[in-house]
Design a protein around this nucleic acid. Sequence first.
DNA 1: AATGAATGAGTCTTCATTCAT
DNA 2: AATGAATGAAGACTCATTCAT
Lengths: 214, 214, 214, 214
Amino acid sequence: MQTNQIENPGRNLLTKKRLEDLKQTERDSRRKIILDAALELFAVKDFRSVTVREISRHAGVSIGTIYNYYPNLTELFLDVFLNCAAEITQMLDNISSKTPASLEQLCEFYITYLNDNMTFYQMMSHFMLGGELSPDATQKLDEIMKELMNRLETALLSVGYKTNSRITAHALFSALNGIMISYARYPGKTDKDIRRHTLRLAEMIADVFSGKKP
Amino acid sequence: MQTNQIENPGRNLLTKKRLEDLKQTERDSRRKIILDAALELFAVKDFRSVTVREISRHAGVSIGTIYNYYPNLTELFLDVFLNCAAEITQMLDNISSKTPASLEQLCEFYITYLNDNMTFYQMMSHFMLGGELSPDATQKLDEIMKELMNRLETALLSVGYKTNSRITAHALFSALNGIMISYARYPGKTDKDIRRHTLRLAEMIADVFSGKKP
Amino acid sequence: MQTNQIENPGRNLLTKKRLEDLKQTERDSRRKIILDAALELFAVKDFRSVTVREISRHAGVSIGTIYNYYPNLTELFLDVFLNCAAEITQMLDNISSKTPASLEQLCEFYITYLNDNMTFYQMMSHFMLGGELSPDATQKLDEIMKELMNRLETALLSVGYKTNSRITAHALFSALNGIMISYARYPGKTDKDIRRHTLRLAEMIADVFSGKKP
Amino acid sequence: MQTNQIENPGRNLLTKKRLEDLKQTERDSRRKIILDAALELFAVKDFRSVTVREISRHAGVSIGTIYNYYPNLTELFLDVFLNCAAEITQMLDNISSKTPASLEQLCEFYITYLNDNMTFYQMMSHFMLGGELSPDATQKLDEIMKELMNRLETALLSVGYKTNSRITAHALFSALNGIMISYARYPGKTDKDIRRHTLRLAEMIADVFSGKKP
DNA sequence: AATGAATGAGTCTTCATTCAT
DNA sequence: AATGAATGAAGACTCATTCAT
């Protein structure tokens, strides 16, 4: 190795860089594996009851490895949450990429996403209401929430809102989030029923915010 | 003694009844002590991290006594929640007892209550989204939520809503609940700021639902 | 009351005595109620897992009352055991009251009793092997065991055993007891199967001790 | 490193294998440490009253470690029992390895073992009579009991028993086990006295089963 | 970088017993 | 004598995190 470096430093630099890239790629993909494993677990059970051991087993890595990628469980949970949020903003961008989506479409999309990803909602509620977060984590959380809001505001603007667009975005975001906390656990209803009902409420809220109602 | 019983059985019965009443009263008050102690603790820290030991110490009773009144911690938590909810419905009744309150007043009241009792909100979110509840507990939860909704609908009706009052009550309830999940933890803001902002959003939602906006 | 004593001491003594008798009778019957309640519970579940509360509930008396009759749970358990043992000796006496029973009959009876009263056997095993017993309790235990042995020896004698009757009684008693510890929990067998098998073994042991085998 | 792997994968494999062996060995030895610690404790007090904390302290490991090796206390207890049983079968094999042992020798050996290892006997009684066992545990228990029986039957056969060897093995096993339940706690007797008496009974039973008596 | 055994503080819950009424 | 609420020590078990290999 050292011999090579002396003989052909240039090529070696390249190699070195490639190796580092490779390492980084490997690192990223392993991180992804862990993330996905966690997400799959959350689909099955309340994320608050998922243990490191479970995640490590499900991901096929050791417990230690998880701590090589995240300083603690909370950060892993936060990462899952952040990824979901990023996914949402991405999707929102896609929806409105060509022609601006209607408020109704936006609301419908969001509620559908929440129905499909209850964990995201649980985490939002958990982090926003309860959890002790490191300053760093707090900042990340705030940023992504702001980002989400931005998209919503943009959408609102493109839909025709002129005044108070920011505060309206806040209110709309609130109203949508509230749907799930109120009805995610409706007694004796199937998932399908809940989906229908929450979408109905989303529609109503969209209408109300569009001035169509009451 | 025996003579007395024969001579005046009525009085004895009365005494017995009084004793039982007293016992019940004592029981109720001790239960209240435990409840209040828990509530006070919840004001200081996330209710999910409060232990039986803490509650027992704070209430000045033994651990065992807690379990004399509640089969497990979850039931105690649920009782705290249920009491808060009952308090809210009571207050809502009071507000509208003479002259029907405006939608805005209603919303303002609810958000103010949530600001003052974050634990109630945390618990609502906890029980609605996650927690394993016994069938009995689930039923209690559902009932109280329905009760809350009834009051909201009543208020809505008295405010002039004619059609779709039920679903509108749902939507309004959702919208209000969402405010807190979205802004209870606004970065770098004081409690006062948050209170102002959330009230502002409540007002906006009231307006929107009243057709004053957008 | 006092006046009566002076006027008619003789009659009063009688009354007093009667009252005491009555009290004693009442006391005895309540004790019996507790005892029977415990026994019924033991028929359903391992006596080691039966709690004072369960017994008190099942007997329809308060916990305190139980402690009025027994200084602690162990003594109650011991009393149940002692009563069973007394019942056995009584039955043995009955069996051989007219014509002496054969060894086989004796063994059959004992094993049948154990099959019907596993709790007795569990307790014998518990007290003989493990439990810390008060000196008083120990003495009671020893006495009843000796009594049991006496009956067995008597039976042996009446059956024709001349020499070594005492040690033979010991050995026989041991052999019978061992049947249950070895086969009370035979894998995948029904109660009926176990009963048949243990009776078969009892028969064999009776034969062996009678010199019929091997 | 990489060069080595390419040049000599075999050696590397070997190293890897050795490492795993070492780990397994270490694991085994630690398991043994826990086991022995438990056994030592059982010699001092009733195994039912031994706590995880005591065992962990005595073994010089943490509580968590215990649960790294056993899913729960019962399994640890069962393992102790199973090891004893395995030891007994091993010893029985040794005794009869060259020349078949006499029935008397066999019985003497077994009773001596029980005198030396009362815990084994307590556990047998506990598991056979009472304890809730997992299906897996139950199976292990049944197997080892059967194994024990096999040895006894083999011994019986080698001693000359031709007919009914299986059922006779059952009866003999029962008879021996019964000795301890009946006399392990003889009032006011020293260990030595008990040992003598129980050995005397074992001898008697051996005789009886050999047809020498009565 | 990956591993996973070890750690042990901390959790909820149980239950025999007491004692004021 | 009967009651049963109060007690609190004690128990089994969990699980995020560390760290030597």
